[in-house]
Simulated assay, not measured.
Amino acid sequence: MPIELNIDGTLCRAEEDELLATVLLRQPVPLFRNHPVDDSPRAAFCMMGVCFECLVEVDGVKNQQACLIRVKDGMRVNRGLK
């Protein structure tokens, strides 16, 4: 069943219970965050919760692993990209 979530202020459609990382990888800019030290762009790597490259803010909670979170209708995601 299709749902809508908000990614960086833009409405996005996804399938209920789809992993957030797969939805983010389908976006026009498939990046998740910028590295805190050198500001390099980061995206999902391992897709199993080991590498922590997919950290995003979900519903106001920072540093959530997108590869482990299932999307829900109305979810708000902030990637914090520069």
Rank of each mutant, 00 (worst) to 15 (best):
53 E>C: 08
62 K>Q: 12
16 E>A: 13
53 E>W: 04
22 T>Y: 14
29 V>P: 09
9 G>T: 05
20 L>K: 03
54 C>F: 03
21 A>V: 06
1 M>P: 15
36 P>A: 08
42 R>C: 03
15 E>M: 11
49 G>P: 04
7 I>S: 06
62 K>D: 06
20 L>P: 02
82 K>M: 09
74 G>I: 03
57 E>Q: 05
72 K>N: 12
22 T>Q: 13
76 R>W: 05
55 L>G: 01
68 L>P: 01
59 D>W: 04
68 L>A: 06
59 D>P: 09
27 Q>A: 09
64 Q>A: 07
80 G>M: 03
38 D>H: 06
5 L>G: 03
62 K>N: 08
7 I>N: 07
63 N>Q: 14
76 R>L: 11
57 E>C: 03
14 A>K: 02
18 E>F: 00
66 A>W: 01
39 D>H: 15
32 F>I: 00
56 V>S: 02
16 E>H: 10
17 D>E: 13
28 P>D: 07
60 G>V: 04
62 K>V: 09
47 M>S: 02
59 D>Y: 04
78 N>W: 07
22 T>R: 15
62 K>A: 14
14 A>V: 00
19 L>D: 03
17 D>M: 13
65 Q>P: 12
17 D>G: 11
48 M>Y: 10
34 N>Y: 12
44 A>W: 01
26 R>Y: 05
